[in-house]
């Protein structure tokens, strides 16, 4: 007779094994990523980069830390930018359309 607790404990054990496996996987991945991370660190040093490419929607947020002293949404002149505008949602299509003629005018003909 198959025992109910066998199934429950077996399943829990399996889940625990997967849980443990995530830590093994994390260690392996860390080792695998290490060379690339080191190369990235070198690149940052060589090119004198200062910011991540996470917020490219506006010039004053692409390089968050290199903003003007009084830029939009800054807490305080001494505080560095950390509230990227429009960061949760892209701009509405309606507004984009309004800029379409302007964009066409400025666009290169390539």
């Amino acid at each position: 007779m198959s025992r109910p607790s066998d199934r429950v404990l077996g399943f829990t054990l399996l889940a625990a094994a997967l849980f443990a496996a995530t830590f093994v996987d994390a260690t392996l991945q860390r080792a695998a990523h290490e060379p690339a991370l080191q190369r990235t660190e070198r690149l940052v040093e060589d090119l004198r980069l200062s910011d991540l490419v996470l917020f490219t929607e506006a010039r004053y947020t692409r390089h968050l830390t290199q903003a003007d002293l009084h830029s939009a949404f800054q807490d305080h002149p001494v505080a560095l930018e950390h509230f990227p505008s429009g960061s949760l949602l892209p701009p509405p299509a309606l507004l984009l359309d309004r800029h379409e003629p302007l964009d066409r005018e400025a666009a290169p003909s390539d």
Binding site: R39, T40, L43, L47, L52, V53
Partner: peptide, 12 residues
């Protein structure tokens, strides 16, 4: 530029 460093070089 290398893909592995996209976090810092994607738009350069």
């Amino acid at each position: 530029l290398a893909h592995e460093s996209e976090l810092v070089n994607a738009d350069l």
